[in-house]
Design a protein around this nucleic acid. Structure first.
Lengths: 147, 147
DNA sequence: AGCAAAAAGCAACATAGTTGCAAAATCTTG
DNA sequence: CAAGATTTTGCAACTATGTTGCTTTTTGCT
């Protein structure tokens, strides 16, 4: 085992995730996936650039995130402050088809965004004529850890 | 009556809205409010800059929108594509306290965002420990006019 | 090890948003 | 309605955020 590695499983998980998605295993992809795995909450592009940016070009971070979204490894979470956040998808997300029918929670104290995987988005009764294809729910408040 | 004016009521409504909010009545504010009144859907900063931008400085548009949000004249709608949209508030929004407990609808065809004022956001049952303060619901699909 | 394909890095550019300050418009009050 | 105080605007300069094309490096494969 070469160097510091919080959990040895991470590296294996990362490699298999990338291979399953037909992406070659590169240092930046491993590093960025590692950040997602160890962070729990969602990350914005800026977060990632700050945490890993010393080592990678800005453009690489953009392209990596883009590739991950396309392959269904991460999904985007819209926020009110105009900064998209990204979070790991559950296993049942595949390329192009995201199944993130869960609610997102933004904590006003710690400013973290969490996927509440067990809380499914409710059905919304729309006025006549409107057809819903997808429902995004963002709940804001105070999270479990901040009370 | 000086010039073209789709609906004469607009100018009155605009003036009273601004006065009620303790904002002085200036040309850019009147113009931008006019855009909101005649458009029905929500507008992004870019939309406004394009529609009114010939006449006003970019900075003025930023500051005007910011003032309107602070005073409770308009509210922001988060979108998935990292471009905040703005829409007029109902009358019961006051400075600082937005009461936009309604659902927003983004149409994939015409790319317009509408406030569904009659569709209230549902209660979300959260896991133990989480406290909700606000719920944002964004429904994506096809709108009434695009079918 | 060697080759083709993919990804990273670099530079240059495009767009979006912010700040400080001087000039202009608006509001206020006599 | 004029004059001064106050807001607001426009300008310039700057920072941050994203994008594109191209060359070099890394990866995957045999």
């Amino acid at each position: 085992m070469p160097a510091k590695d919080t959990l040895p499983d991470f590296e294996e998980k990362i490699a298999s995730l990338l291979k399953k998605s037909h992406l070659s295993v590169t240092e930046s992809r491993r590093k960025i996936l590692h950040l997602f795995l160890e962070h729990a909450g969602a990350l914005s592009h800026g977060d990632i650039e700050r945490k890993a940016g010393e080592k990678f070009d800005r453009v690489t971070v953009y392209r990596t995130l883009q590739a991950f979204v396309e392959k269904g490894i991460i999904h985007t979470i819209p926020t009110a402050d105009n900064s998209i956040r990204y979070a790991l998808c559950k296993d049942d997300c595949s390329a192009g088809h995201h199944h993130d029918h869960h609610v997102h929670f933004l904590c006003h104290r710690c400013n973290n965004t969490y996927c509440l995987d067990d809380v499914v988005t409710p059905d919304i009764k729309l006025p006549r004529g409107y057809v819903a294809e997808q429902v995004e729910v963002l709940v804001e408040g105070v999270c479990k850890n901040c009370r």
